[in-house]
Amino acid sequence: MPRFIIQHITLYNYEEPVTDSTNQIILFPVEDEHQQLVNQQLTITGDPVVEIYKDYYGNKVGSFMNIAPHRELRIDSKVEVITVPRVLPEDIAEPIKQWSALKLLANDVLFLDFLRQENFSALAEMKAVADAGFYEVVSVYLAVQQLTEYVYTNFKYIQGVTSVETTLEEIWKLKAGVCQDFAHILLAMLRILHIPARYVSGYVCPKDEGMRGEGATHAWVEAYIPSYGWLGLDPTNNCVVNDLHVRLAIGRNFSDCSPVKGTYKGTARQTLEVGVSVAYDDGMVSDEENSFLKSQPVWSNPVDDGLNSYQRYMEMIQQQQ
């Protein structure tokens, strides 16, 4: 049973002191039969009270505030996690039975959220690829792996070409992106085939074999396999997820799982650095602290900015009932 010590640092620096900062973090490893949290140390600038609750999808979500003027916000989460190897599906049932078992879930409250695919204009193109006639001849277990491979081979892994605001449409056209883009594309394709699929955020801890997604939070997908359950699929690394992935949260998409987000009042000029390092139980460390932070493009807008006056006006006159 692998044991990991993961340190995840998020560091914001502001050019001028900012105030009224409010933040939400989803940095608490899932605890279940496949994953055990030994301990967690969370250190945040200014030592605010972190209120933790369970959201709709069962994720632990923390929130905290810092209203006094400050130039820096550092969120340092250190966790020790043990993962349990998984038994993979036996996959013995006839494909036709598996697929019709999935169709029965269409109105099930537990799966509705993971089956609903938002409309977007390239949907028809994507449907042509994720074609039921092609995939439903094999078992669901094989189909999801083939789709994972499709995303892996047809999309280029390039950092910096997409952001959290990039739409599915744009990723599909660009045929490139990072782990969360890969995950979003695979989610859409699975849902087109009526396979319940959910977004997973977490860490990847490959030790020797290099994997994409190290040094930051990673994202992948879980698909529902009839008479088995949720199976992790990592389209960025083209693999079925086992005990080298540590889960933080699940949801419909990235925004249900966003590891750190916040708002504040003050200057728009800020920098963000993020780093994730993994230490293994044999003492090996993937990256030394202090050298592992990498600067990130910043997408969040401070509260005082981001809207033009027309939008602000439209907001203010929002229709009343």
Partner: peptide, 21 residues
């Protein structure tokens, strides 16, 4: 939609971040 920019519309000027918590 405008009540808590942290949770809902992040560009909202009308709400209060953190009100939902």
């Amino acid at each position: 939609e405008f009540l808590d920019p942290l949770v809902f519309n992040p560009t909202s000027m009308l709400g209060v971040a953190g009100i939902l918590s």
